[in-house]
């Protein structure tokens, strides 16, 4: 009797290790992938590990990173937001106008927040109340916002005329440039929002089973509008950084394909396209992976024309790995 008991207790033990490993992989595959890519990069290029290069990578990804945080929330809710790049430009253009007209940085910032979240709000209303598929609704917004930006700026760039505005993106604290800090802080805030508050819980529920969420007495429409508005707000923060960095914004070439980079980061980070599943931490590392890839390709002098190919490949590999699970 004692003997059989021994055997029984050992058996689960063995499979526990195997189980643990597969759990670790399924929960943290993006982090593991990040570590692998990081090590590969440091072997391939000696300059990669340079502190300056590291900070440079963080700086490069901060804008897309902030946009991708918003994209994660939208995708968790079961939607998608194609309008982020265009809204970013629109916010940039209007912000510079407000800045030049009033001379006040604070009013400029406020304007940015309002324009960004209002564009998001409109997306949300179309999706939640109008029952338009998010792909279509935000595609419309993408075209419309870009067009308004082009119209306002007459197709060109507009530059800030108030000194001090550039400080936002170009100053630093110790070794960290402000955009890096803003990205890190936003990541933490969004993490808390999604994992520690009821808003986050409701977003996951809606993305996973909308009907059950509604029958659980969740205000589905409101949450959805909130999701898109929040994504818009995050876009406006990204827009401020983008505009402040060069003290100008180009209505035709800024923000182009940002939606693709953001979606790529979210997907690499393990968020499911159909919603309900994914993590903010995943997106954070997804963004870093994209950043390292870009950086490596530059360090190794890969033709810029081929860089899109490599990125595309990585995205597809990431999705294939997710499917396996």
């Amino acid at each position: 009797m004692a003997n059989t008991k021994m055997v029984k207790e050992q058996k689960p033990q063995m499979s526990t290790i195997k189980g643990r490993l597969s759990w670790l992989w399924s929960e943290y595959s993006v982090i593991i992938a990040f570590i692998i890519i990081f090590i590969a990069a440091s072997v391939l290029s000696p300059r990669f590990l340079d502190m300056n290069n590291q900070l440079n990578i963080l700086m490069q990804v901060s804008i897309i990173g902030i946009v991708a945080l918003g994209m994660t929330i939208v995708m968790l809710s079961g939607g998608i937001d194609l309008s982020v790049g265009s809204v970013l430009v629109l916010v940039g253009v209007v912000t510079v106008l407000a800045l030049n007209a009033t001379g006040s940085i604070w009013i400029a910032l406020l304007t940015a927040f309002i324009v960004g979240s209002f564009a998001g709000f409109l997306n949300g209303v179309m999706v939640a109340k109008g029952r338009i598929a998010s792909f279509i609704a935000t595609l419309g917004m993408m075209a419309a916002a870009r067009s308004i930006a082009l119209y306002i700026a007459e197709g060109g760039s507009i530059s800030g005329e108030v000194s001090g505005f550039t400080a936002i993106a170009n100053n630093n604290l110790w070794i960290f440039d402000y955009p890096i800090l803003i990205f890190l802080i936003m990541t933490i805030l969004v993490y808390i929002l999604m994992h520690k508050t009821r808003f986050g819980r409701h977003v996951y529920a809606i993305g996973s089973n909308e009907k059950a969420a509604l029958l659980s007495a969740i205000r589905v429409d409101r949450i959805k509008i909130g999701v898109y508005s929040l994504a818009g707000l995050l876009v406006s923060i990204a827009a401020i950084i983008e505009t402040s960095r060069l003290n100008s914004i180009s209505s035709s070439s800024s923000g182009v394909q940002y939606e693709l980079d953001a979606i790529a980061a979210v997907i690499i980070g393990g968020t499911r396209m159909t919603g309900g599943r994914g993590k903010i931490i995943g997106t954070f590392f997804g963004v870093l992976i994209l950043g390292i890839l870009n950086n490596m390709m530059n360090l190794m002098n890969v033709s810029p024309h081929l860089q899109g190919f490599v990125k595309g490949l990585i995205i597809i590999i990431a999705v294939v790995f997710q499917k396996r699970e």
């Binding site: 819980r201 996951y204 529920a205 993305g207 996973s208 089973n209 009907k211 059950a212 969420a213 029958l215 659980s216 007495a217 969740i218 309900g276 599943r277």
Partner: peptide, 18 residues
């Protein structure tokens, strides 16, 4: 399955959802 289960949330989070 259709009306109540939020399959991507944990057991605890399903319990506390409403």
């Amino acid at each position: 399955k259709e009306n109540a289960i939020i399959k991507d949330l944990s057991v605890i989070h399903n319990m506390s959802l409403s």
